[in-house]
Amino acid sequence: MNYIEHIGKYFMMLRQVFTKPQKARVFREALSREIEELGLKSLGIIMFISFFIGGVIAMQTALNLDNPLIPKTLIGFAAKRSIILEFAPTFCSIILAGKVGSYITSSIGTMRVTEQIDALEVMGINSLNYLVLPKIIATVFFYPFLITLGMMLGILGGWVAGNLSGLFSGVDYIEGIQTDFKPFLVQYAIIKTLVFAFLIATVPSYHGYYVKGGSLEVGKASTQSVVWTIVLIVIANYFLTQMLLT
Results as ranks from 00 to 15, higher is better:
Ile84Tyr: 11
Ile84Trp: 13
Glu86Thr: 02
Glu86Ile: 07
Phe87Ser: 01
Phe87Tyr: 15
Thr90Phe: 10
Cys92Gln: 00
Ser93Gly: 07
Ile94Gly: 04
Ile95Leu: 13
Ile95Lys: 04
Leu96Phe: 08
Leu96Ser: 03
Leu96Arg: 09
Leu96His: 07
Ala97Ser: 12
Ala97Glu: 12
Gly98Met: 07
Gly98Lys: 14
Lys99Arg: 14
Lys99Pro: 08
Gly101Lys: 03
Gly101Met: 05
Gly101Cys: 04
Ser102Arg: 08
Ser102Lys: 09
Tyr103Leu: 15
Tyr103Arg: 11
Thr105Ile: 05
Ser106Arg: 03
Ser107Asp: 08
Gly109Glu: 00
Gly109His: 11
Thr110Ser: 11
Met111Glu: 11
Arg112Phe: 14
Val113Gly: 03
Thr114Leu: 13
Glu115Thr: 10
Asp118Ile: 00
Asp118His: 02
Ala119Val: 12
Ala119Asn: 12
Ala119Thr: 11
Glu121Tyr: 08
Val122Ile: 15
Met123His: 07
Gly124Val: 13
Gly124Asp: 13
Ile125Cys: 09
Ile125Thr: 15
Ile125Met: 13
Ile125Asn: 10
Asn126Arg: 13
Asn126Phe: 12
Leu128Phe: 01
Asn129Met: 14
Leu131Tyr: 10
Leu131Thr: 01
Pro134Ala: 13
Lys135His: 08
Ile136His: 14
Ile136Trp: 15
Ile137Asp: 01
Thr139Pro: 06
Val140Gly: 05
Phe141Asn: 04
Phe142Asn: 05
Phe142Cys: 08
Pro144Glu: 06
Pro144Asp: 03
Phe145Leu: 13
Leu146His: 06
Leu146Gly: 04
Thr148Lys: 14
Thr148His: 12
Leu149Lys: 09
Leu149Gln: 05
Gly150Pro: 06
Gly150Thr: 02
Ile155Trp: 08
Ile155Glu: 01
Leu156Glu: 12
Leu156Trp: 08
Gly157Val: 03
Gly158Asn: 04
Trp159Leu: 08
Ala161Gly: 08
Gly162Arg: 09
Leu164Gly: 07
Gly166Asp: 06
Gly166Met: 00
Gly166Gln: 02
Leu167Asp: 08
Leu167Tyr: 14
Ser169Asn: 10
Ser169Glu: 07
Ser169Val: 02
Gly170Asn: 05
Gly170Tyr: 14
Asp172Glu: 10
Asp172Cys: 06
Tyr173Met: 04
Ile174Met: 06
Glu175Ile: 00
Glu175His: 00
Glu175Asp: 12
Gly176Ala: 05
Gly176Pro: 03
Gln178Ile: 06
Gln178Lys: 14
Asp180Glu: 07
Phe181Ser: 01
Phe181Gly: 01
Phe181Met: 03
